[in-house]
């Protein structure tokens, strides 16, 4: 089932023609835009938008939390904005939008990344796991349980990113000491200052030997 997703297609060539057509169209529109007047405004309002909507998007296949998506997205859409604004998977948070806080951390093909600093199209064919995909049904992931037990959060906003990062931290083998955890979790900022509790949660899961 996951096989298809591990073999990314290369849609670039597929839509290159469409792109060229669009670029031609937009030059026309640009020229038109230089000519003010009600006719052009009407054209711009209706035509421009429809043309743009049709041509500015590219096809995208993603597996998100085990569910397959076939999408059309603008290339400039980040993975984060795709998740939050189009797919309503709002568990992944926007804290800075510049890769400076870690609130948007998700796993792509099992690796933790900042979803705000990657374009959705760059992840075509990949397998994305967000906080919504971590629990198995009603059964929480051990890391989620440990965060609750150790109070590894207050406001909860950085929490999904912390948890995704924490799971990866153990999987990567970087949770062998308090100091190592702190260093390898430093890409996830918690302004409420729950850090010691988060470290305690990670240590418990790591020492508990549960599969993460």
């Amino acid at each position: 089932m996951a096989q298809e997703n591990l073999n990314p297609t290369a849609p670039a060539d597929d839509h290159d023609e469409a792109r060229r057509t669009f670029l031609k169209q937009t030059s026309v529109l640009t020229a038109l835009a230089l000519t003010p007047g009600p006719v052009v405004q009407a054209a711009a309002a209706q035509w421009d938008e429809k043309v743009a909507a049709a041509f500015e998007k590219v096809p995208l296949k993603l597996d998100i939390n085990g569910k397959k998506y076939r999408l059309q997205v603008e290339p400039r859409t980040t993975l984060l904005d795709l998740l939050r604004e189009q797919l309503h998977l709002t568990g992944t948070k926007k804290g800075c939008d510049y890769g400076q806080c870690g609130a948007c951390t998700v796993h792509v093909d099992g690796q933790r990344v900042n979803s705000c600093l990657t374009l959705a199209v760059m992840q075509d064919g990949r397998k994305v796991t967000t906080i919504e995909g971590l629990a198995e049904g009603d059964k929480l992931h051990p890391m989620q349980e440990a965060f609750i037990k150790h109070d590894g959060f207050q406001c909860g906003y950085c929490t999904p990113g912390q948890i995704m990062s924490a799971v990866a931290c153990i999987r990567e083998g970087h949770a062998n000491s308090e100091g190592e955890i702190r260093e390898y979790m430093s890409g996830n900022i918690c302004r409420c200052g729950a850090y010691p509790n988060i470290v305690a949660a990670i240590q418990e899961v790591k020492n508990g030997g549960q599969k993460v």
Binding site: R112, V113, L117, G187
Partner: peptide, 9 residues
């Protein structure tokens, strides 16, 4: 450099 996430990218 950077963070674990950024180094993964």
């Amino acid at each position: 450099g950077a963070s674990a996430q950024l180094r993964n990218m």
